[in-house]
Computed example of a mutant assay.
Amino acid sequence: MKHAAGTLAFLARCVVIGLAAAFVIGLFWPGSGERLRVRLGLPATPDASAPGIAAPASYAGAVAVAAPSVVNIYANKIVNERAIKMYDNPILQQLLGGTLTTYARREQTLGSGVIVSAQGYVLTNYHVIAHATDIQVLLYDGRVAKATVVGSDEETDLAVLKIDAGNLPVIRLAEQKPRPGDVVLAIGNPLGLNQTVTMGIVSAVGRQLNGSSAEDFIQTDAAINLGNSGGALVNADGRLVGINTLLIGKAANAEGIGFAIPAGTAKKVLDQIVATGHVVRGWLGADYTFVPVAANSGLPAAARGALVTDVYPGSPAAQAGIQPHDILLRIGDDDIRDPSDLRRRESAIKPGTTVELSGLRNGSPFHTSATLTERPPMSMEAATPESTP
């Protein structure tokens, strides 16, 4: 027993002496331990202060890839305004006052666009070119081209223009969808300043700005200002991830909240407009909301599925016997996660297609089928924005 205690005491003294020696050596000869590890062929000690992933010192490479594909758009329109015309003669002014008249004035809207095809197709926002009588496009290399409207989609706030020019730099679409936290760059023509780049991150994806719309948006804190509309939102590789569309500003006590249309959505709209001149969406003819759950149930605030709040008379839903308060759980072969998911799946179905619908009515399962029609035109509602850039 005494022998074991003596051995432990000896080992403890050795450890203390060794630690003290290491401290003195490290204090007076810093780096000696690392040199010894290298001499013995041992791996170097990792630097705990070094970040796991180093951010690039510059995004100039991404800008150089994407910027040539971003154009400035100048949309001219004639606006009729009413005014009071006053007489030049002071006596006539006193006797007759003024007369109501209408006069026309020219108004120019600034915006941005993205070249998406070597054939001259340019994506921009619908509100940039709405009611325009003349549209001019300024290319990155200084050329100016007259643009014609191929078609537009008010619901997604997208429009397709066509310019007659050669040797066009076409932007490349990102292969992966953006994730919250990804670095993004907004390129456009804010306030008429021509090519301007702002940087931020993806704040969120799948944002629903209009309860009746099937589309979702990318939220970003990259600065988007008036004139950025229709410009490119690109990733750190210069690939297109979205089309900038609107901002929520200080009037809503918000800062750093902008939105972009996902590139995948924009590509689908582009393909349909080029092929047919407009976008076709399936329509069931009902309004939905989240499925409520009792507060004491221990379940999430909203359950899976979509609760029917209204059915339009004569619509496919009405003909299928769907009623308000029904809970829709499945459309075709797909489960329904929430109302937004149902709207996206519904709009993606070709009009004239018959689909099976499953759900609950008063707690009991039901099944029916509906033949979807084309969605009627919808007026796009703003999501309390301060302005659309």
Rank of each mutant, 00 (worst) to 15 (best):
I91G: 02
L96T: 00
V71K: 03
S49E: 08
A5E: 13
G41F: 09
A12H: 03
G97S: 06
Y59S: 04
G61K: 13
T99W: 07
V65P: 13
A60N: 12
F10T: 07
L11W: 04
A60M: 04
Q94K: 05
S69Y: 08
A83K: 02
I53K: 09
L36A: 14
L19K: 06
A60H: 13
K85N: 11
V71M: 06
A20S: 04
Q93P: 00
F10Q: 03
V63N: 12
A75S: 07
D88L: 05
P68W: 09
R13Y: 01
N72D: 11
L8G: 10
V38L: 07
N72H: 07
S49Y: 02
S69C: 10
T45L: 08
P43S: 14
Y87W: 08
N89T: 02
Q94H: 09
A20Q: 01
T99G: 00
V65C: 07
V70P: 14
S69G: 12
P46C: 09
V16C: 06
L96Y: 15
A62K: 11
P43Q: 11
N80Q: 14
G61S: 12
G52A: 06
V70Q: 04
N89F: 01
W29T: 14
I25D: 01
F10M: 04
F10Y: 02
K85H: 10
Q94L: 10
G41K: 10
L19E: 03
I91W: 13
I84W: 06
A75K: 08
V24T: 07
K85P: 00
P46K: 05
P68V: 08
T45D: 01
A9M: 04
V16E: 02
S49R: 12
I25P: 02
P68Y: 04
G18C: 11
L42E: 05
A48E: 13
A67T: 03
G61A: 11
V15R: 07
I25K: 05
R39H: 08
A20R: 01
R35F: 04
V63F: 12
T99R: 12
V65N: 15
E81W: 00
I84H: 06
